[in-house]
């Protein structure tokens, strides 16, 4: 069972705030992959508010916690975070191996296509065996065009060609797939910087979105992942995938709190339509009240 579901049940079981309340709540946060340091911050903040406002009732405590979580999730949103979708723009998708980058791109392409946009994909994962084929199959399925490189070829060349093609073909949204790479491999991260600068040379900042894809099952390591990718490519949004499994997903809270990267999309299944815009209010309401 996911962290957020457990949180919901937790507040149902507790009536009053006693000694065990904070300990159990902290355990819940840690078990939910929020991370020990961040968990303690959430708890301390809750504790001090409850003290100040003289709250002893678990229901009221829940409202306070809800506010706090929402505050974190909304901190980096100003209402313009999806503006890039209204312009002719480019999305660079980055992340470690196996988080679901290619699948996410397939889903995004399907979504934009359904909105009547002209989409182009760039298969710049020239490293992993059959990654290009995987993206080709997605492109076929969704019915969009794709710029291919050769396996083992230069990903920079693919991105460059794709950018040119996007302009020539008057494409609305260009989505670039990149090879999965562990964020602690300096050389691979440098390659990514290069890809990023090729794009930045052609697109103004407000028309470039960089999404880091994070597997919702990842533990505290995800924070390092997001940090390193942010440094290399100026990440502007987070996609949380595989939220339908037994994933805890608490790490998303930590990433947003620590790094200020807003969650933009969540992946909730394997079908082409299983991608959703992230709505903090709806999400938090889902956590605490079960409207989801």
């Amino acid at each position: 069972m996911g962290f957020f579901k457990k949180l919901k049940r937790f507040f149902k079981e507790y009536k009053a705030i006693d000694v065990d309340f904070y300990d159990d709540l902290e355990e819940l946060f840690v078990m939910g992959d929020v991370g020990i340091a961040q968990s303690e911050e959430f708890i301390d903040e809750l504790k001090s508010t409850l003290h100040k406002k003289l709250i002893y009732d678990a229901d009221e405590a829940m409202d306070v916690l809800k506010e706090n979580v929402l505050k974190v999730l909304e901190a980096d949103r100003d209402g313009h975070e999806y503006d890039f979708e209204k312009k002719k723009s480019v999305i660079l998708v980055v992340g470690v191996n196996g988080v679901g980058k290619t699948t996410t791109i397939g889903k995004l392409a399907a979504m934009y296509k359904a909105q009547g946009k002209k989409v182009l994909l760039a298969a710049a994962d020239t490293f992993r065996a059959a990654a290009i084929e995987q993206l080709d199959i997605w492109a076929d399925r969704v019915g969009v065009e794709v710029i291919n490189g050769k396996e083992g070829g230069d990903p920079g060349a693919v991105i460059f060609d794709a950018v040119k093609a996007a302009k020539a073909r008057d494409v609305d949204i260009l989505i670039c797939d990149t090879a999965g790479r562990l964020h602690n491999k300096t050389n691979l991260m440098n390659e990514l910087k290069k890809l990023n600068s090729i794009i930045e040379a052609e697109y103004p900042a407000d028309c470039k979105e960089t999404l880091v894809v994070v597997d919702a099952m990842t533990g505290q390591n995800a924070l390092n992942q997001a940090r390193e990718f942010k440094e290399a490519t100026g990440v502007t949004g987070l996609v949380l995938t595989k939220l339908d499994g037994s994933a805890k997903g608490g790490i998303a809270l930590t990433i947003q709190k620590e790094l200020g990267i807003p969650i933009k999309y969540i992946g909730v299944g394997e079908g082409a339509n299983d991608i959703k815009k992230f709505e903090p209010k709806e999400f938090v309401a889902g956590i605490f009240e079960g409207t989801e």
Partner: peptide
């Protein structure tokens, strides 16, 4: 995956 969080054991 070694980077899996608390859910590793559940899986």
């Amino acid at each position: 995956d070694a980077t899996t969080g608390q859910s590793a054991v559940d899986v």
